[in-house]
Nucleic acid binder design. Sequence first.
DNA 1: GCGGCCTGTAACCGTTTTGTAACCGGTTCG
DNA 2: CGAACCGGTTACAAAACGGTTACAGGCCGC
Lengths: 224, 224
Amino acid sequence: MKVLIADDDRDLLELIAFTLSQAGYLPVKAPDGNAALTLFASEAPDLLVLDINMPGQSGFRVCETIRTQSSVPIMMLTARNEEEDLVRSLELGADDYLTKPFSPRTLLARIKALMRRAGMENSGPLASGRIQLNVEDHTVQIGTEAAVRLTKLELRLLQMLLVNAGRTVGSDRLLVHIWGHRNSGDRQLLKQLVHRLRQKIEKDPSLPEILQTATGAGYKLVVE
Amino acid sequence: MKVLIADDDRDLLELIAFTLSQAGYLPVKAPDGNAALTLFASEAPDLLVLDINMPGQSGFRVCETIRTQSSVPIMMLTARNEEEDLVRSLELGADDYLTKPFSPRTLLARIKALMRRAGMENSGPLASGRIQLNVEDHTVQIGTEAAVRLTKLELRLLQMLLVNAGRTVGSDRLLVHIWGHRNSGDRQLLKQLVHRLRQKIEKDPSLPEILQTATGAGYKLVVE
DNA sequence: GCGGCCTGTAACCGTTTTGTAACCGGTTCG
DNA sequence: CGAACCGGTTACAAAACGGTTACAGGCCGC
């Protein structure tokens, strides 16, 4: 499993590469953004770890560029005071992020989680029961119904619920996953998003069968 | 969710414990490193918060020792000028750190993040005897009965009682755990909450078999 | 620039949850 | 005995929550 790491901090780059090779991955090292793009093309890694702050091409740019051609999982690295950038990263298509400093253990755990989440060997449609989510072209198909087009946010919501299909996902977790850190009291956004998604995927949106409410806790997907 | 806190600063220890109990965690307090190790063995907490500077065993040592036997998430606390120790801590397997002073809000956010990362956000159903508490979607199942939905406060109460199943839990402790510090005379709230919970989980709420009263002391859960 | 979606924001409504008060019966103790 | 206290219960008010409607600004393709 190849992992491309891009960071201009030499020490950190080596540390990460070492950690990953210890864990059985094949690290590919890029000291800046341009190298990252070149190596991405030549090495075809299975996962990317991008620092945001890099000379020349920022991690942002790299992420943006790569997302135009691939849905490979991307993890961003960021310093503690760049949290607004985070939201932008997620919007650009990054899948997870880590705030520096972090422990090698943590990085490893998150990378594993990302691989698992991405399904890795199967980067195609994410499915569970009668729900089939096609991440690439933003559509879902429920049972034998016609496929429905989703917006970016609806996709994120459904993705998170589908990964945890059958189990309740807390509102806070959803908020963080969909919008990045947000004023914690902002339940209205989630309320809205759930409502809009239900209009699209439920037979009778006022009696939800798929996207159910766990009052006081969160929402869950019923997939039988 | 039990959290072991080790700090020799009494005030800070109490503050952290209070903050965590407010947030629904079960704090366990250790005034020094040795106590931390003892309590770690006896209480089996789900997360550790360790101050680095402590008389006797430093947080450092404690971290090292515990890592030899467990991969429980560890957060280190450090004063501003101890940053070198930090790096060593992280290398030793700590998962995150906070620099003093910090706000309770911050601590809480980081602890939550840590739990999530460790994948123990919803550490599955907490069970004892015939009582099965599902924290993630706020339900309990008693024996083979249908699962019952609980409110946030009912969940906290039952959680506290279940963790101490069979033993009496004092009213004051319950009050603190559920509402945080409160006008101490406010037993009415607890009375109410117990009453409401009994309506949901007891076969005959007027003859409680599960949630029993220890007159003058508190309540306890009978799980046989 | 226009019209279309997508997203964020506010307001309203009915329901659930939580807080507060009052009453009841039992026990304790001066 | 009677006042004080305790826990259980009933009743009601206040606050929070979730669903819904409506609307405005942003963005994109035409």
